[in-house]
Amino acid sequence: MRVQYLLTALLLACLSNISLAASKVEIDARIDATLNEFYQHVPEGKALARKAKGVLIFPQVIKAGVGIGGEYGEGALQIGGKPVAYYSTAGASIGFQLGAQMKSQIILFMDTQTLQQFRNSEGWKVGVDGSVAIAEFGAGKDLDSNTLKQPVIGFIFSNKGLMYDLSLEGSKFTRIIRE
């Protein structure tokens, strides 16, 4: 029972770092910082983002779980370097998991058709409505040329926390309306 209380406290501490239903200004500021970090970690990142038809950026996605887990984050879709819509990402999972983590996600839509399918959907679920090729990068790793040929390329970085998951499978992206 103490473990559950400890994990609940840990989850609340992690969630206190982000505010749910952030304003456009807050999301945009976090996005700028996230893109700068992405460009530092992935030398090819800036050129890829320029070639992309759309870039979906989630600066802070919090995931926590004790057997059953969940994640949530807010971000924006940029086209031509400007935000055109704001989205949330949410997901749930069941299985062996214990802990919490915060990560950043960048998803590049490399072709117009896939971007339009995403924008026209009521809620786009990875693995159902489309797949995302996760790019592996890091110390001494070059981006895989097969991954770079995919219509949707995902980058997950800045893992901070006690859980490690480099997957978007089951994540759902939903447009959020902001006044």
Results as ranks from 00 to 15, higher is better:
A29Y: 05
A47Y: 00
I68V: 14
K63A: 13
T34V: 03
I18N: 12
D32Q: 07
L6R: 15
L12Q: 13
E122H: 11
F173G: 01
K51R: 15
R175H: 03
L11F: 12
G80F: 12
K46N: 09
K24Y: 08
V42D: 05
L77W: 12
I107Q: 02
V61E: 04
L148C: 09
V66A: 15
L15T: 10
V126A: 12
T112S: 15
K141H: 14
F58W: 05
R30I: 00
A13Y: 11
I18D: 13
D111Y: 06
V25C: 08
K172E: 14
R178A: 05
I79E: 15
L168H: 05
I68P: 02
K103Y: 04
L48K: 06
I18R: 15
D144R: 15
V42H: 03
G81F: 04
V61A: 00
N36Q: 11
S23E: 01
N159D: 08
E122A: 13
A133K: 13
Q113E: 14
E179F: 07
S131L: 12
F109M: 07
N159E: 08
F155S: 03
K82H: 12
N120C: 07
P83N: 12
G45S: 00
A100K: 01
I134G: 02
Q4F: 11
K53P: 00
T114H: 13
H41N: 06
A52N: 02
A85Q: 12
V128H: 11
Y164P: 00
